[in-house]
Design a protein around this nucleic acid. Structure first.
Lengths: 231, 231
DNA sequence: CCTACCGATCGGTAGG
DNA sequence: CCTACCGATCGGTAGG
């Protein structure tokens, strides 16, 4: 088989968006079509023949680019989990109040998922337990842990209402997921005000004084600017 | 085939919980095992042999109780969608403020899903587009519409902050879903304070004056009592 | 409820 | 990138 190892880093989305899809590397074309099909019919409900057909090639030709169907799913995890987990870790270490960092994390998550050329709905919550995704499952749990730590910090400082950090994590994840899921259905993105609306709604529910949400948004804007400058 | 039509009403959960699982009707045993497997591996990732094995019977024997795998999924929809949609319609017509009715709806949704003997995570958002589930898809959209109307009413009366009703619906659904998903993972239920916590968090984000959430909770308790008395 | 079996489709390989 | 093909598994049926 001529498929190269998956460990080499995939191109950044921001680079890809500048090109028409026909000029993308074949691997990214496969990822994009597979993500769309996985989102619609699920991983198990999508056959490798479905993916090949979407690309206009025969099913065995896929195996020149990926050694297995699972390898495609693993590469998608790099976009669905790897990138956001790394980002939230950066944000957690930024210099700002816990609520501002949380606001920035939510806003950037939603923006990223809505503007990404691949459909992020293809990795539902329980698929992550599939054999072969163990390391991505650990990364996802690290993401959860970072968010809980941020919430805990905000609660201890009195900025956030006294809320169970795991419950807050669930609320954040749930709202983000549903917003992304619905918005992706109505094809063609451009995030609009969804990232800001989502972060503002969640912080209103989390802040000890919900009236402070405007002030938190402004502080978050600085964190976001610093993140963009640093990456 | 001797399978009876699916249109006959299934037994209520509250009746079933009084019996040990071995004494349940075979159909409910099948639904319960299938729901658990669908939640773990997805509908397409679960074979009819998997379901049969969980029941200790051979795969073709399933077809004495259900005419197809799809028919099992359809019966699950009656629990996952039919019951909650009917309940929220009753609540929307109750005599109370919009925020109290919303609080009651969220609380009862979470309680129902956590106490139900079947696992409600088996019906992820996009499976509903499967051929054969069209009527359940319509019921789900009716559920969405009822929630949006409740939010719109609350906004117009000034009780809720000026929020897009569809965004509110997404936030409610997203938080409910994630809470249910996580809580069901840790087997064995008893809802605890999750229903109340979830409703309180969401109403805090939705209310024009989040400080009123305690008062709304009390009004919701009356709506819930009226609902239980009526059904 | 069982055994025996069906055609269709699955992920993946051989070889060019 | 293709054609040809593999064994395994799928949902479902026949017949008792």
């Amino acid at each position: 088989m001529s498929a190269k190892p998956s460990t080499e880093s995939r191109p950044d989305f921001t680079q890809l968006r500048a090109l028409p899809r026909e000029r993308w590397p074949r691997r990214e074309q496969i990822l994009c079509e597979a993500a769309s099909l996985f989102a619609q019919r699920g991983y198990h409900g999508t056959s490798t023949r479905d993916i090949a057909e979407a690309l206009g090639i025969r099913q065995p030709s896929l195996y020149n680019h990926y050694p297995s169907k699972l390898a495609i799913l693993q590469d998608l995890c790099a976009y669905d989990i790897g990138v956001p987990e790394e980002r939230v870790r950066w944000l957690a270490g930024a210099e700002a109040s816990a609520s501002a960092r949380l606001y920035a994390a939510v806003s950037l998550d939603v923006e990223y998922c809505l503007e990404a050329p691949i459909d992020m709905r293809g990795l539902p919550d329980d698929l992550i337990r599939e054999p072969g995704l163990e390391s991505w499952n650990r990364r996802l749990r690290a993401w959860y842990g970072t968010v809980r730590a941020l919430v805990r910090e905000g609660v201890e400082e009195g900025e956030l209402a006294p809320i169970d950090p795991e419950f807050a994590r669930q609320a954040i994840w749930g709202v983000e997921w549903e917003v992304i899921r619905v918005s992706h259905g109505g094809r063609r993105r451009r995030a609009g005000t969804r990232p800001d609306d989502t972060a503002a709604f969640l912080l209103r529910g989390l802040l000890a004084d919900p009236g402070r949400v405007g002030e938190v948004r402004q502080a978050a804007a600085e964190v976001i600017a610093a993140y963009r400058a640093a990456t």
